Simulated scan of single mutants.
Amino acid sequence: MGYATLDDLKERLDWTLDGDEERIALSALEDASDLAAHYGRDWPSDAAPRTVRTLVLRACKRYMSNPEGYVQSRAGDESLGWSDAAGENAGTVFFTGEEIKLLATLAGRATGLYSAGVTAWRSVRRPVTAGLVPVENAGKPFPLFADEWGPG
């Protein structure tokens, strides 16, 4: 089960892969596809949203372009640097936080705060007479609540 092919990845890279790089790229595609199924859902390969394919290829290109996860390099004395920003993902195939959120959204598992109205079994809603504010020189009281049923 892979959401992208080696040929798809080759089209996005700026160089021609040698034999070892092709082997590494195939493993990266497999890892990225597994992560996409984990963070999203296990879509059938032929029915996955196109965005899943794009995200898998983006993660693989990021890895293939910088497999060690360097964020700093200097040629003079040959110093290299890593960042803690990538954390344990430095030098591996990974999705960014925004990519993980997008995969969850594509899978229908978006996070957030939701509210749901709750009523008792066989209850009947009745209009609330409280919640109306008297208005001087006007015949009709002003509603304090959003609707006649109460706050909400």
Rank of each mutant, 00 (worst) to 15 (best):
2 G>H: 14
5 T>L: 11
6 L>D: 08
7 D>M: 07
7 D>S: 10
9 L>C: 07
11 E>D: 07
11 E>A: 08
12 R>E: 11
12 R>L: 03
13 L>T: 08
15 W>V: 06
16 T>L: 14
17 L>C: 06
18 D>F: 08
18 D>P: 10
19 G>I: 05
21 E>Y: 14
23 R>M: 07
24 I>V: 13
25 A>P: 04
27 S>M: 07
30 E>H: 01
33 S>P: 04
34 D>T: 03
36 A>I: 06
36 A>G: 00
38 H>C: 02
42 D>Q: 06
42 D>W: 08
44 P>Y: 04
44 P>V: 02
45 S>Y: 09
45 S>L: 03
48 A>I: 05
50 R>A: 09
55 L>F: 13
56 V>F: 02
57 L>A: 02
58 R>C: 04
59 A>M: 13
61 K>L: 07
64 M>Y: 14
64 M>L: 15
65 S>C: 12
68 E>N: 14
68 E>P: 02
68 E>Q: 12
69 G>I: 01
71 V>F: 05
77 D>K: 09
79 S>M: 15
80 L>Q: 08
80 L>A: 09
82 W>C: 01
83 S>R: 13
84 D>A: 15
85 A>C: 05
86 A>R: 02
87 G>D: 03
90 A>Q: 04
91 G>R: 08
91 G>N: 04
93 V>L: 08
93 V>M: 07
94 F>L: 04
94 F>G: 02
95 F>Y: 13
98 E>T: 08
98 E>K: 13
98 E>V: 11
99 E>K: 11
100 I>P: 00
100 I>C: 04
101 K>D: 11
102 L>C: 09
108 G>A: 08
110 A>C: 11
118 V>H: 10
120 A>N: 12
122 R>Q: 13
122 R>D: 13
123 S>K: 08
125 R>A: 15
127 P>K: 13
128 V>D: 10
130 A>W: 07
131 G>C: 03
131 G>P: 01
132 L>F: 12
133 V>M: 01
133 V>P: 01
133 V>I: 02
134 P>C: 05
135 V>R: 11
137 N>I: 01
137 N>V: 00
138 A>I: 04
139 G>D: 11
140 K>N: 00
143 P>F: 06
143 P>V: 11
145 F>V: 00
145 F>Y: 10
146 A>C: 06
148 E>A: 02
149 W>Q: 05
149 W>V: 00
150 G>V: 06
151 P>R: 09
151 P>I: 14
